[in-house]
Design a binder for these strands. Structure first.
Lengths: 153, 153
DNA sequence: ATCCATGCAAAGGATTTGCAAAGAT
DNA sequence: ATCTTTGCAAATCCTTTGCATGGAT
């Protein structure tokens, strides 16, 4: 995953290119979002807001929403739904891609990559007459006997 | 896809089993939802509400929401998100499953099935130590030269 | 007769927006 | 100096809920 410092660099150049400005708030939101401890939880806007507040308690709710929107436009964040009816955000690294598995027992979200599936998705799109530009895939399941590491329950 | 009449039968037995009652409103909502013209659009609650109103203008918004929830519990409807930030509902037929492709040009939603992908999903889950219970997959793409039938643009 | 369902309006939760003040270039 | 951003509160959108009335078994 991207380091916070790299993310801020990318964000800064995106802002400049778009005629927008780098601010201390945007820096703090980005740092909080790319903090491994925060972001591994795929935070909701509210969860991120709480973490942001720990770093700068004067930052408002709306600023977090506005920053998440900009991070998304800059390709640094990606919103998703993982079955709990909440919009959760995760950091995007340019060039990387992964999908998600959700444990239905404990709610934990695990990331995975599967090139074979990606390839088949491209084929499916082609068969329908389209060029694949994006996809969302979320798997749900319950731990079986061999699950030791992932599920807490 | 299920005929409206079959859906109503299934719903009726689900309601009976659950100590709930079949009503004219639930019948109308189910008929509208399983009308091929309505449901091929993967309607939002509001879109369905408008179609329901054409059939019985006294039916309220809340009833449509409540009915959709019951249809979902009965396994006859399934909510999903297809990239436009709206919850859309589609009819479920017991035993069938399909995923979705969304044209990014015209927004049209196409259903597809791919057994090879489904198989790989089971394997991915197994590798993580889980038994797959469900999944959501939405592909996005733009029409290529060979797209004639699907995309209107 | 009993309990569930309905329609309405009000409440709720998540996200966005208007505005005046503060900040960045 | 100009134009963007911020924080707050109000507004908005979607969905759910409380309650009195009507309906189903």
């Amino acid at each position: 995953m991207l380091e916070a410092a790299e993310a801020i660099e990318i964000l800064t150049s995106y802002l400049a290119k778009s005629g927008l400005k780098m601010t201390s708030q945007r820096r703090v939101v980005t740092e909080a979002f790319f903090d491994p401890e925060v972001t591994s939880d795929h935070p909701t806007a509210e969860e991120l807001y709480l973490r942001v507040r720990e770093r700068d308690s004067r930052i408002g709710y709306a600023t977090v929403y506005r920053s998440l929107k900009i991070l998304t436009e800059a390709g640094l964040a990606s919103p998703g739904r993982f079955g709990d009816n909440q919009t959760r955000y995760e950091p995007e690294s340019p060039g990387e891609h992964h999908d998600h598995f959700v444990c239905t027992e404990c709610g934990k979200i695990v990331e995975f990559e599967d090139d074979a599936i990606e390839k088949l998705q491209i084929e499916v799109a082609a068969k329908l007459g389209f060029e694949l530009t994006d996809h969302k895939m979320v798997l749900f399941g319950k731990p079986n006997g061999t699950c030791k590491a992932v599920c807490k329950t």
